[in-house]
Simulated scan of single mutants.
Amino acid sequence: MARTREFDRDTVLLSAANLFRQRGYRNVSISDLEKSTGLVSGSIYNAFGDKAGLFRAALAHYVDGFVRQRMKVFAGDKARLEELEGLYLSVLEMPLADGHGCLITNSIVEFGREGGVASEGLGEALELVRKGVAGVLERELGAEAAKSETTRLIVLYHGILALSRSSTSFSEMAEMVRAEFSRLRNLRDSAVSA
């Protein structure tokens, strides 16, 4: 009887998520996953079913361990515009500014509306970001203003993450983020003084 190989699930999922983030789902083979995770194909199939199962597990791990945690830090219950601005600026600084973007944004680009293997994880991540951004804006600007500004900031966030894979100047994107949040602080200050 074959012996079950033990492995650190978090380490494997982190390695797989990073590989998928760098190369995309379609451009990663089982052989690539073996090299990246240190698992043999049999262990991958036994633990995750197939490449799609490993991708779904890696995506869920990324959402829980990265996206959810960042939303708590930058858009938690007491976060203000200043903390939310930090979320945007942080993706333009190392180690996040490594040229590979975000697994969520990259998967949105790769799968489009088709979703498929990524549907559940992408939906969860997008909702986490939407709720986090909307929560800060509602506290800082009021419910009415938050409605129009939330979509604007979500588009800005994923636009930055997509463009972080291009030759677009990070300093120019950071300048634009600062200008946008300056505008939002002016809205907040106007509402307070009115």
Rank of each mutant, 00 (worst) to 15 (best):
L84D: 09
T105M: 13
K78W: 00
G86S: 10
A79L: 00
S90E: 05
G101W: 14
L103H: 03
Y88H: 13
N106H: 12
V117Y: 05
L96E: 13
C102D: 15
E83Q: 14
L87M: 09
E93L: 12
E110L: 13
E110Y: 10
L103Q: 10
K78H: 14
K78F: 13
I104F: 03
G115Y: 07
G116I: 07
G101C: 09
S107N: 13
V91M: 03
E110V: 08
E93P: 02
G116Y: 12
L96W: 12
C102Q: 12
L84Q: 05
E82D: 15
G86Y: 05
I108N: 09
Y88C: 03
E85Y: 01
L92A: 05
V109C: 12
R113K: 13
E110N: 09
G101F: 07
A79D: 00
A97Y: 12
G115P: 01
G86K: 03
L89T: 11
K78S: 13
N106T: 10
I108Y: 07
E85S: 06
E85Q: 12
V117M: 11
E82F: 06
I104K: 08
A97I: 00
N106L: 06
V117L: 09
E110C: 09
E93W: 03
G115L: 14
G86M: 02
I108E: 04
E82T: 15
L96A: 11
K78R: 09
L87C: 04
G115W: 08
L96S: 11
Y88K: 14
L89H: 02
I104S: 01
G101E: 02
F111G: 10
